[in-house]
């Protein structure tokens, strides 16, 4: 693996940044990363890419399905809910990543949200993290039954569904950007067996 403390024989700083970025990807075993504009058509492209990649790599069918399921919820959540920065800004643009370790896959997304959405989101995340399988099952049924369409895909049923499919605690983080917005990052773990 490249040692990033080693001087690069290049006078091109963008290329140096690239090597550093590639090194960080390898170190953290990031198998896929996408940043930029998210839309339904991009969601379909990323899904089809990931499906092909994992079907070539001997990933168990049931694990592949879980990755697919959780990816859909994360990507559609970004395309529906991410705060728009305006066409000129690339700062704080949404990111989606897949990491892989010896025994699990990690699906990570990060996008800018309005601070007013933090309390209900945090409450829901803490709630699903405190529940066991049966508790999550009951919560899912109850929230789905009472969901209205404006709220489907909001701070609710998608998170419960991801928690059920993952069988692990969901890690999350809110990083303040300014007085009104924060970067919301979420990491879902899927065991390989």
């Amino acid at each position: 693996m490249t040692d990033i403390s080693m001087p690069f024989y290049t006078n091109h700083s963008a290329l140096t940044d690239f090597f550093e970025f590639h090194h960080l990807m390898e170190k953290n075993q990031i198998v896929m990363t996408y940043a930029g504009e998210f839309s339904q058509s991009l969601t379909k492209t990323l899904l089809s890419f990931t499906e092909k990649k994992f079907s070539m790599e001997d990933v168990e069918d049931i694990v592949r399905r879980k990755i697919f399921n959780i990816m859909v919820e994360l990507l559609q959540n970004i395309s529906k809910n991410a705060l728009d920065n305006g066409p000129e800004s690339t700062e704080h643009s949404p990111v989606f990543m897949i990491g892989e370790s010896k025994d699990c896959f990690l699906l990570i997304s990060s996008n800018k949200i309005s601070n007013e959405h933090i309390p209900p989101l945090q409450k829901r995340l803490d709630q699903v993290n405190s529940l066991d399988t049966e508790g999550l099952r009951q919560l899912y049924k109850q929230v789905r039954m009472n969901a209205s369409f404006s709220k489907v895909g909001g701070a609710g049923i998608g998170i419960i569904d991801m928690a059920r499919k993952s069988n692990h605690t969901i890690d999350y983080h809110f990083l303040p950007v300014d007085d009104h917005a924060s970067m919301f990052s979420i990491q879902i773990k899927i065991s390989k067996n």
């Binding site: 399905r65 697919f68 399921n69 859909v72 919820e73 559609q76 789905r144 039954m145 969901a147 369409f149 489907v152 895909g153 049923i157 998608g158 569904d161």
Partner: peptide
Amino acid sequence: EYFNTASSKLIL
């Protein structure tokens, strides 16, 4: 073979 959570509500 697969449906997202929003579809799950519609199927219900």
